[in-house]
């Protein structure tokens, strides 16, 4: 039962991710990727990691998808310019070959590694435990993450908003 559920989650996630990577229309790709991110968060719920599942929904489905959609809409030339120009055949073939080679190595390693046979009951982490760990053991890492997020946000705003050189010379 749980295995079937896991396979179903994996199939939905993988199919929407693969279709998103194949499509020509950028908006459709982003919407399908949102579906795949939701699938990953459903997997987190399935594995008993509710905190991470809600973080995934908030960060990816809520924030990153909006940022990506804004970037898509800000970087098109005309109303009809939604389709991505096709890439060369050899590029696609070599990319699929490289990804297939990586997949073969990964699957070889995963399937041939002996795993402990008994299925453990699984740890349970409630939000109180996670908060204690975050504020106790990992307090320094939490501060560093806060710094990274602040610097990255400020840097993103500065990079996207400054128009210095191109304003004087006009768009190239």
């Amino acid at each position: 039962m749980t295995t079937a559920l896991l396979i179903l989650i994996a199939l939905v996630t993988l199919c929407s991710a693969a279709t998103a990577m194949l499509l020509r229309n950028l908006i459709h790709s982003v919407l399908l990727l949102i579906g795949s991110w939701i699938g990953v968060s459903v997997f987190y719920l399935f594995a008993g990691a509710e905190f991470v599942a809600f973080a995934q929904v908030l960060v990816y489905v809520g924030a990153v998808s909006m940022v990506v959609l804004f970037a898509v809409l800000l970087t098109r030339r005309s109303r009809a310019d939604m389709a991505v120009s096709p890439d060369t055949q050899s590029r696609a073939v070599s990319a699929v070959l490289a990804a297939g080679a990586v997949l073969a190595v990964l699957l070889y390693a995963v399937l041939l590694t002996p795993l402990p046979s008994g299925i453990s009951q699984g740890p349970s982490a409630n939000v109180r435990q996670i908060g204690t760990e975050l504020m106790g053991t990992h307090a320094a890492a939490l501060l560093v993450i806060g710094m990274i997020l602040t610097v990255a946000t400020l840097g993103g705003v500065v990079i996207a908003s400054t128009d210095g050189a191109s304003k004087k010379e006009g768009p190239k």
Binding site: L6, L14, A17, S36, D87, A95, V110
Partner: peptide, 21 residues
């Protein structure tokens, strides 16, 4: 094992997408 296969497949879909587009 199932989870690892799932994540390997997801990783390779992302890799193929990042390399081919």
């Amino acid at each position: 094992e199932l989870c690892l296969v799932f994540s390997s497949l997801l990783f390779c879909i992302g890799l193929a997408g990042a390399l081919s587009r």
